[in-house]
């Protein structure tokens, strides 16, 4: 039983409104600590954003708007066009979500509605095992194990079956955007699955029983009742995974190859905004480092925007249901 379930209980805190006055004078240290803790967090947060912005100012001055439009990225040569990084970041993330969203949601549905009760704990523990493997290990695995498979089997096959049409053009190299997308998808799937599973588990039984009594088949219950009622929760899961994919760093430094120009196909090598920070910080002098802070700032804004949008959508649809 939680506080929020009780109709009369306040949403949070044990002392709300006027009741607080009763005990205020005797608990000053406690209340003082509370205010200090909140203020401390705000200060650190502001300092974090401030110092990232502050460090990136020389970079913005040198790169200007060309940061978003320039197609050549070479820190040592003073060429700060980050379009290659931006395109690679967005395309690997998009690819990862294309794989991870259907598989992750489907697996979560299967975990709740398909796997026998005895196996449920085992199956969801296994999925969570995938979530705790550190990203550096995914990178190593992607490079050593997946890259040869991509190079000798998947990429030639893709070219053959599509008759060399875009985006499957270019020389297969194993590493590149496709491999990056697959590795990212592997890291995102357990996030999507774990959160969606929690959401699917608490679908009101009345809804399911109602649909069944109206004659729905098992598939129809999931597709027409369970999925629509969990839209917001699933969206939250996808958002978290999307943020993780956009910001993933170390694994991608292993599997993406390198960067200089805008990638032309799924087989092109590249670097994302985050992975380039990890591999290039300290190599391009003070100005180069500052440009990398620009990249970090853009990344923060994109991730923040994604979170904000998804939260707005969630809040709106919650209001609609109430």
């Amino acid at each position: 039983m939680s506080i929020t379930e009780s109709p009369v209980a306040p949403k949070s805190g044990m002392t709300v409104g006027r009741e607080r006055k009763l005990s205020t004078h005797s608990d000053t240290l406690y209340r003082g600590l509370i205010i200090v803790a909140l203020a401390f967090f705000v200060l650190v947060g502001v300092y974090y954003f401030y110092s990232i912005i502050d460090q990136s100012i020389p970079g913005w001055k040198a790169a200007g708007f060309g940061f978003f439009t320039g197609t050549t990225w070479n820190l040592n040569a003073g060429q700060f066009g980050a379009l290659p990084l931006i395109v690679t970041t967005l395309s690997t993330t998009l690819l990862a979500m294309l794989f991870a969203a259907p598989i992750g949601i489907g697996a979560a549905l299967a975990l709740v509605y398909l796997v026998p009760r005895r196996l449920q704990l085992l199956a969801s523990s296994l999925v969570e095992l995938l979530a705790i493997v550190p990203s550096v290990i995914y990178g190593a695995w992607g490079f050593i194990v997946l890259r040869p498979i991509m190079l000798y089997h998947v990429e030639p096959w893709l070219q053959r079956t599509t008759h060399n049409t875009w985006p499957f053009t270019g020389v297969p190299s194993g590493e590149g955007i496709l491999l990056g997308g697959v590795v990212l998808a592997t890291m995102c799937v357990p996030i999507v699955t774990a959160i969606s599973r929690d959401v699917f588990e608490v679908v009101p039984r009345d809804l399911i029983e109602g649909a069944i009594s109206l004659g729905a088949t098992r598939g129809q219950v999931l597709r027409r009742v369970v999925l629509p009622s969990c839209r917001t929760g699933v969206l939250a899961a996808l958002t978290l995974a999307l943020g993780r994919a956009l910001g993933e760093t170390i694994a991608l430094t292993f599997v993406l190859g390198g960067v200089s120009t805008v990638p032309k196909s799924l087989f092109s090598a590249g670097a994302t905004m985050a992975s380039e920070i990890a591999s290039a910080l300290g190599n391009g002098g003070a100005l180069g480092d500052s440009v990398l802070f620009c990249s970090a700032l853009v990344l923060i804004v994109i991730v923040g925007l994604v979170n904000y949008l998804s939260r707005t959508i969630i809040r709106r649809s919650q209001r609609k249901f109430q």
């Binding site: 974090y48 990232i52 978290l240 956009l246 760093t249 990890a278 990344l299």
Partner: peptide, 10 residues
Amino acid sequence: GMPAITFGLF
């Protein structure tokens, strides 16, 4: 949700 690398930079 913030990318971990940005904390390292900060």
